[in-house]
Amino acid sequence: MPDPQDTGLAPAPAPTGAGAIASGPPKRRRYSILTRRDKIVLLLMVGIPVALDVTFIWLPTLASILLSFTNYQGIGGITAANIVGLKNYVFLFTQYTLFWPALSHNLLWLAFFVFIASPIGIFFAVLLDREIRGSRFYQNVFYFPVVLSLAVVGFIWELQYAPDGFIDSALGLTSQNNAIDWLGNPSLNIWAVLVAASWRHVGYIMVLYLAGLKSVDPTLREAAAIDGASEFQTFFRVVFPVMAPINIVIVVVTVIESLRAFDLAFIINQGTNGLELLSTLITNNSISEASLIGFGSSIAVVLLVISLVPIVLYLSRVMGSASE
């Protein structure tokens, strides 16, 4: 090591106050607690993930945004003739009859998960946390669907919902005139799919929440009980606030699961006839034989913008609490 260890403890001259930066600081040698080797290691540790991040996430995202201003069809190169400006967006918002249904289905999916499926999962977790008899059994039963891929979930529920399937048979509705066409009726099938999706989501949330509940300090409950709090009060006034970090995880997981909703609708009928979602519109328009890559990209950009809202909220919260 030719470098003498210059252990200057001088902090980097980073301005701490906002706007307090003075232009043109005098040029002087920076001291650092890091050796050259440290810097190389750091550079690699930060550089490789950043490079991967940029290559596989930021560049494709940027490419999608750029493609959304073209009518590129995936054959040959993109020429000036392909650039159509905002035409894709104008058509999407004003004339494409499947866009608004798809968007509303995505929002419905989000609302259903946030207000129904996730609370049920939390409720189950609270019940199972009470060491009721057979708790481990129930835990496994509810968690079981999470192990299945959504493709399998779709297949299972397709059988249940078929006109000659379990549900209609159990309801005694098998004849031609009164059978309920769960997956074919365009105003009904989104709800049928939401139930199927929740079947899996509930178990997922339950396990996450249960793990959180197990880590709550039991003395808190004891203290609450001694103070005369009811079960209800104990949970909402004591346990729930303590669980804040898990709650955030639950919210994030729920939002992510809702925004990436795709598999079930696509398996059932390719996301058509009442099951339109932004993700299936993207696939059907840009990846299939249709190859409307430009148009599909514009839908993808809309989904990106929607996804950015929870991402920004989450990150600002995480970053905010980290800097405190």
């Binding site: 993930p49 996430i57 999608s64 493609l67 599909g296 996804s307």
Partner: peptide, 8 residues
Amino acid sequence: RPEAPSTT
């Protein structure tokens, strides 16, 4: 890392 929105 932000959970990247998957684009097309």
